[in-house]
Structures are given as structure tokens and as C-alpha cells.
Write a protein that binds this DNA or RNA. Structure first.
Lengths: 337, 337
DNA sequence: ACGAAATATGGCAGCGCTGCCATAAATTAT
DNA sequence: ATAATTTATGGCAGCGCTGCCATATTTCGT
């Protein structure tokens, strides 16, 4: 179907000039038709369109972007792809972005601020229309680059701190505090913590800090804690709880750094026949599907991950002054507390 | 630290010309230094670099790509971000791509071939160096565009069919067959199936076909099946099994369209006190973390998702003839069969 | 019917960079 | 010392497209 009659010999691909020539019109006319801008007659429209179709013309947005002002790319920087949380944010962002004619370009930092810096530098060289980044903490140079770029920058998933331009998320500190208060109000007093590497996951660290402050309000403190020096996972949660219990500390509840970890703890209890919440209460964070569908729905904090992506994307695509949206979170009183 | 002395007034950002002028050298010299190509003296190098640094210069890859031949972008087209399977592939691809200096650009089709077509058309307009797509089934026009593009194209996660250029994956049909044979060899005879929307997830359909053929080999057929007209999820699996059992069919095993669905089924049994595998055996597909860490590890097929992404990316970045890599899969004999 | 206003269309200068070619300067060979 | 190389460096034409301006070519208003 597609005509292979090679005209231009530059990069092999058909160019606007080829289409214009084939349609017997000028380049600008062809350009207008193809983009639906400006005015042109119906006859012209048809001949350009049919020429484009028969030549198998694919517009070159690289050239288009260079010629016009801004690009239609939006950089998205997330720490990980291993935890469904970030794909969720990405999904929300993607929907809105594509709907608005933008193309997401993703980069994964692996929770490393140095890598974040170089990835952002690299993304900026594509002259994106905007940038979406997870979290508020960056290296000084990252912050400088983002500010210098004079583009929309959205920082996601955290509101505990100052942002560069747009901030969309919720307070991790408050989430931790709410979690702690919930456990206290349920009457638990010997409360432990099982978490993953906090030095890299700063938002988890904020939750833990908020959590501790809630216990302190009640005159309590974390009875025992176990930090797995790795990223969060179900297995890490399972091992973490196992190790915590091996120590013999008497615990009636455990707060986990997130749902993955908590589900691991839940599985450990199921496997060991530890009654939940009778012998051991479990609390997580995120409100994942797996937590909601478990035989006993997990008590956790539901976070608006997709909405964070959507709102961030919407603001990045729009004009306006710096904005700050706190989407909050929801305490899920499941069956594990 | 960064000097704000605006020189160029075009798009606001610093250009190579600005850097060259500030360093007192020609554009091409500045370009060579910045890219580390060609030759230049140490003195020149330093002055260019320091000029670039103090001006806060960020190279414009849009311009660079247009001027040189190919881009350093690679398009990645996946059906979904809701299931961890695709982020896993993406993760593998991302690691290799970034390591080789490429920038991934993702698009999500939502299992819709029409959307896939338009997303791919849009991606191609960025003149990517290569393209990675999930699956072998595309619209005719998608196939034509991919072939016309004269770039590396990798089709992932399936080897049951003809590919365009590079194919990296495993046989879903064989995976289904292996699953069926496993259940049969374990002595199960009343085998049911709980799946999600197969009209869109063609690979799940292939697995089910392979599965049925294994049962037929043993003179059996699917005793009962329940298809949830939605995408796969833990909840869908749970509901699906519940509905299947409500019908009163006597079943001793159920094959699920994937691990998400299977975990849902597993949770249903736990909640209802159905003994596994005594009263009911469960078999899934993918080998997710949650399946491996459950109190009873799920019997399933472990798929090399990250490796698929890695190998696909490696081949896309390289020269050479069309390739086909079958990475196989692994039968996990868990505790649910 | 005649200029005014709208509608169509082509020409061409860049966008910022790379690649090629021509020089100029430093080094080595003879 | 002079030629032959090697190393440095600048100039400039595009890459394919868009945006602006200049030119037709209609369509109206009165």
C-alpha cells in the first residue's frame, strides 16, 4: 500500500518537502494542512493528505520542536519501578499527559539523589515542556537546574517541605502520625516497627518520624524496630517481622514502612499461626490492592497515587502561579488492628 | 553560582554559540570539547567547560539530534501499568538503555490495538533509534509503520508467532500447556479456569489455549470456567473463584489467567476455610513476589520479565540481523497444588 | 462595480547543533 | 632548515520544520 518511491535521500525518510512537492503545493501549505492550522481549501487539503498517505510520511517532531518554541515532552522522574506505587503515579500522569498531547519521558533514579541529578540534567537537554519529580528533596544542583530551566516543575507525593513550583501530594509526616494515633487509640501499647532502608526513602523516614511523635504524644515509644537494609518488598517485611519476633520483645502491634512490608508481616503471622489482630496487630501504608483483598483487609493509609499523577500532570500542562495541592490520605480501618 | 547574564534572547536558554563566545572559541571547537570528540588543547577544554558551567549551559539534544543522524530515544509500548509485569519489563529495558546512553519514551496502550497504532505513530515522529513493543499482534498499519521506519523493533513477551525484527520472550502457549500438564500429573481431574478479559490480553488467551490442549491430551476438558470482563486483579480473581464455586461444579483445581487472579483465588480460599491444596488446588502465572512469599507459595510459572526487557533493549541498541530469543519460563512447584 | 476584508498560498529565514572542509599552529621527519 | 604530518580550530551549510511576511485569489459590502 505504501509507496516506496524514494525522493529525498537524506535520512531515507519522507520529508514535508517531499509531500509538498508530490501534492503540488508549497511547504508551508502542506505544513498547515497537516497540522490543521491556518486556512487552506478543501481541494488542497485532500491532495496534501493523500500525498502524505501514499508516501508514508511521518512528521519529524524533532525538527518541528526545534523550529517552534516548546516541545511536547514531559520528563517524569521516579525512584523505582519495582514498587507498584510509582507505576500508579506514572499511570495517572500518563493519562492526562497523552490526553493533552504530551509525551512522557521517564527516568528511574533508584532512590539515588546523585543519579537523579544526572538523569534530570539529561532530561532537560530534551527541552521538555515540564518535569515531574518524586519528592521534595534534591541535591542543590538539581534544584538549581530545575529552577533555571524555566519550565513547569511538579514535585509529587510529599507536602512536608518547600517546593520549587508545583507540589502535589500529601503529608507523609501526618500519615505516620495518623497511623500511630490509630494504633494507640485501639489500645496497643507495645508497638514495634519494621521498615526498609530509610536513608534513601525519605518519605518513609518522614512517616516513621510522624509515627514516633504520635506515640510520644501518648507517652509511648517504639518498643522495638527492625530495619531491613534493602528496598521494601513482601519478603523483606516477612523477614523483618520474623527477626523482630525472634528477639523476644513482647509486641502487640507492628507498624510497617509500607503495605508491601506489612503484607509480608501478615503472611508471616498466617504462616506461624499468630492470631491477627488478637496476638499481633499490623498496620501498613499505601492501600494497595493486595492489602484490600486479603482475607483480613489490612489496616493502612490509602494514598491517592493515581490522582497525584493526574493532578501533577494537569498543572504541569497549564499556565499559572506556583501551586500546592494536598490530596490527603485516608485511614483504612481494616481487620488487622 | 550560576551566572544569569542573559546573552541569547531566543528561547531564553543558553546556546552553544553563547558558550563559544564566552570561551573565546568557535562553535565547532566548543561542540568538540563538550562532546569529547575530535582534538583540542587542554587550555581550550578548560575555558569552554568553565564557560559552559558559569553560563548554566544545557545542551539542546533536539537540535543535536536534528543535525546529526539518529536520535538516542527508544520508544517502549506496553499495554498497562496496573500490573507489575510491565513495569518489570520496563525496568529491565531502562537499565540497559540508560547504560547505553539511550532515553526511554513510554506509551501505554491499555490493551487496545487501535490506541497502540496511534501511539506508535506518535512515537515514530520522535525519530527513535528503536522501538520495543509488547506482543506480536498488531494492526496491519502498525506493522507497516514499524517496518517502514527502518529502525530496530523488538517485540516482547511472546514467541508464538512471526515477528517483525527482534523477538524476545517465551511461548505463552507452552506455558499454558506446561501448567495443564502439571495439574494433570498431580492427579487433578476436575479442573476449572478463572480468567480476565481474553479478547484484549492475547497472551493470556494463548496460555488458556495451551492449557486446554494439555487437558485434552489427558482426555480431560475444562470442567468450568469464569471469565471476568475486566482487566486482571486480585479482586477479580477472588470474585471469579467465588462465582465459579457458587455454581456448584465440583472442582479440585483451578487454573488462573495470572498470579494476580490466582492470589485472589487463594485469598478467597483462605477466607472461606477451603483447604489448599486438599480441597482446592490453585495455579497461576508469572511468579510474582506476592505469590512466592505467601504462606503457601503459589504454584505458578515464573516468567523472566526483567530479562526480557534487558535482552530486548540490548538487541535494540545493537546492529545485526533479526534475532529471536526464547528465554523460556520456569515451573514453580509451590504449595498450592 | 470597486475597494475592503477575508481566504489561500508560497518564500525564506531561522531554531541550535553537527559534520565537513579549510586553515593555522605545533611537531616530527629527513 | 624544509617538507610532511599531526593537532587545533573556525566557517558554514544544512538537518526538517515552523512562523512571519508578501502575494495572490476570492468574497463581500454598499
Amino acid at each position: 500500500m505504501v509507496d516506496e518511491a524514494a525522493e529525498g535521500m537524506r535520512t531515507g525518510a519522507m520529508t514535508l518537502t517531499d509531500v509538498a512537492r508530490a501534492a503540488g503545493v508549497g511547504e508551508s501549505t502542506a505544513s498547515r494542512v497537516l497540522r490543521g492550522h491556518g486556512s487552506f481549501s478543501e481541494k488542497t487539503r485532500e491532495s496534501v493528505l493523500s500525498a502524505a498517505r501514499s508516501l508514508g510520511y511521518v512528521p519529524n517532531r524533532i525538527a518541528g520542536t526545534l523550529a517552534s518554541t516548546g516541545s511536547k515532552l514531559v520528563g517524569i522522574v521516579i525512584p523505582s519501578l519495582s514498587n507498584i506505587v510509582f507505576p500508579d503515579v506514572l499511570r495517572g500522569a500518563n493519562t492526562v499527559l497523552v490526553g493533552a498531547g504530551f509525551q512522557p519521558v521517564v527516568a528511574v533514579t533508584d532512590y539515588d539523589q546523585g543519579r537523579e541529578e544526572s538523569l534530570i540534567e539529561s532530561l532537560l537537554s530534551w527541552r521538555p515542556a515540564g518535569m515531574m519529580v518524586a519528592g521534595l528533596e534534591h541535591t542543590e544542583r538539581t534544584g538549581a537546574m530545575l529552577r533555571q530551566a524555566r519550565i513547569r516543575v511538579a514535585e509529587l507525593l510529599d507536602t512536608d517541605g518547600e517546593g520549587i513550583d508545583i507540589v502535589v501530594g500529601f503529608s507523609n509526616r501526618e500519615a505516620g502520625r495518623t497511623s500511630g494515633r490509630h494504633l494507640v487509640s485501639r489500645g496497643y501499647r507495645q508497638i514495634g516497627y519494621v521498615g526498609h532502608d530509610l536513608s534513601r526513602d525519605l518519605r518513609a523516614a518522614k512517616r516513621f518520624a510522624g509515627f514516633r511523635s504520635a506515640l510520644e504524644e501518648a507517652g509511648l515509644k517504639v518498643a522495638a524496630q527492625e530495619i531491613i537494609p534493602a528496598s521494601s518488598s513482601i519478603e523483606a517485611g516477612r523477614d523483618g517481622l520474623a527477626r523482630l519476633l525472634e528477639r523476644g520483645t513482647n509486641l502487640d502491634a507492628v507498624y510497617f514502612s509500607n503495605d508491601d512490608m506489612a503484607i509480608g508481616g501478615y503472611f508471616h503471622c498466617l504462616a506461624r499461626g499468630i492470631a491477627i489482630p488478637g496476638q499481633m496487630a499490623i498496620f501498613g501504608f499505601n492501600g494497595l490492592d493486595v492489602a484490600r483483598s486479603a482475607p483480613q483487609p489490612l489496616s493502612t493509609i490509602l494514598t491517592p497515587r493515581v490522582a497525584v499523577g493526574e493532578n501533577g500532570a494537569r498543572l504541569v500542562c497549564s499556565e499559572g502561579p506556583p501551586a500546592r495541592i494536598d490530596l490527603g490520605f485516608e485511614l483504612i480501618e481494616g481487620a488487622t488492628t
